[in-house]
Simulated assay, not measured.
Amino acid sequence: MSHIFLIKKIGLVFWMGMLLALTSIAMAPARGDVLIGVIMSSTGPSAIWGYQYGLKDWPKTIGGEKITLIQYNDQGDPGKAAIQAERLVTQYKVDALVSNASSPGERLAIDGVARENNVAHLVIGAVISIDSGSTITSNAPQSPPDAVFEHMKSHAIRRIGFLGYSDAWGDLWLKELQNAEGKYGLQLSAVERFARGSASVDIPAGTFVNAEIDALLIAATGASAVTAQRMLRQRGYNGPIYHTHGSATDDVVNIPAQDFANTIFPATPDIISRILAKYTLPFQPGPNAPSAGKMLEQLLPSILQKEQPGSISFRKALREASEVASAKSSHKKRTWSLVTFDSGAWALAQ
């Protein structure tokens, strides 16, 4: 009896294994699909930008092939980003990687995986350009900080104070501001840094109250940027304040309007349309996610005529095409506007 029971048990295990295998095959995307691995910061410090919302208008099919997105949340952590990129490339065999890359660390981590596997990496986040030493990354149209510096120059602002994160985001903006000194006639007069997510007491806002500056640039995002600004106002700094990407959010709407008088925020065209329509900002939709989708719409049809999704040759062709498209778009002038939140309502900055 024990032998019969063992045989039955082995048979049951075999058929259960077959059922699981068939289920896995049924759930896996068809290999005719074009698989795109998406790494977003849907939680964590960069979640305020709402990049995932920018994917909702992506095409469902291109060139007769279904577009399947496999999404991960790296929480803004470069280590998680690298692990997730590796999993997407090796386990799911994605044809391209897309990320918001809210920090240089994230971008470089994903670039490393893309480079090793010859896969395109499309960056859709509002990240200042960096020299990564890689030809893998293809930027969807980015939003440079020039509009901020041009506004400063047109308003006769010369001496600038800088209050920014003590991480790569702060480093990038500080470098851009230093590079802008000669081009826009600016002078960096005071610099303070603070840790991302630090308590308000740790923000050295008092430095700028008595500093001889014409305006201040806050290189922070979301609630941290709001906290820094409120402390500045409460401690007596009443001069103009400029912000960087990711600060024009509901965190501003929900505090006293006087704390954000005489303040300038960068905003993308889709944000502008929301401001003019509703005077509120429910989220900052990933500024370049739609552009990345359109880039794929332009590139994939001709590649699909020659190569099969999932093949090494398909990956290589898509990577090379995205690099060419990115290089061309980098020479086009981008639309980038500034907004204010005076008198309790959003409006275009003058």
Rank of each mutant, 00 (worst) to 15 (best):
M1V: 13
H3C: 09
I4A: 15
L6H: 11
I10D: 05
G11Q: 07
M16C: 07
M18R: 06
S24W: 03
M27P: 03
I36S: 01
V38T: 07
I39A: 09
S41D: 13
S42L: 08
G44E: 12
S46N: 10
I48S: 09
G54S: 04
P59T: 05
T61R: 05
I67K: 01
Q71F: 02
G76S: 11
G79Y: 07
A82L: 14
I83G: 11
R87N: 06
R87I: 05
L88Q: 05
L88D: 03
T90D: 09
Y92K: 02
V94L: 00
D95Y: 01
A96Y: 03
A96H: 03
L97T: 03
V98E: 01
V98P: 00
S102H: 07
S102E: 09
S102V: 03
G105D: 12
L108K: 10
R115Q: 14
E116R: 15
L122Y: 07
A126S: 15
D131C: 02
S134I: 09
T137M: 10
Q142N: 09
Q142M: 11
S143F: 14
P145L: 06
F149V: 08
F149M: 04
E150V: 04
E150I: 07
K153S: 07
A156C: 08
A156H: 15
A156V: 03
R159M: 08
F162V: 00
D171C: 08
W173D: 13
K175C: 02
L177C: 03
Q178L: 10
Q178M: 12
Y184D: 04
Y184N: 04
G185D: 10
G185N: 10
L186V: 07
A190F: 01
E192R: 12
R193Y: 06
R193P: 08
G206E: 15
F208T: 11
N210Q: 15
N210R: 15
A211D: 13
A219R: 08
A219Q: 11
G222H: 13
S224H: 10
A225F: 03
T227W: 05
R235Q: 14
Y237A: 13
G239Q: 11
Y242P: 00
G246I: 10
A248C: 11
A248W: 02
D251L: 13
V253K: 14
P256Y: 14
Q258G: 12
A261P: 00
T263Y: 10
I264K: 01
I264S: 03
F283L: 13
Q284P: 00
G286W: 04
A292W: 02
K294T: 09
M295F: 04
L296K: 06
L296H: 02
Q298K: 10
Q298T: 13
L299H: 06
S311E: 02
I312K: 04
I312T: 12
S313C: 02
F314Q: 04
K316Q: 06
A317L: 00
E320K: 02
E323Y: 13
V324K: 12
V324T: 12
K328C: 00
K332S: 14
F341V: 07
W346N: 02
A347Y: 07
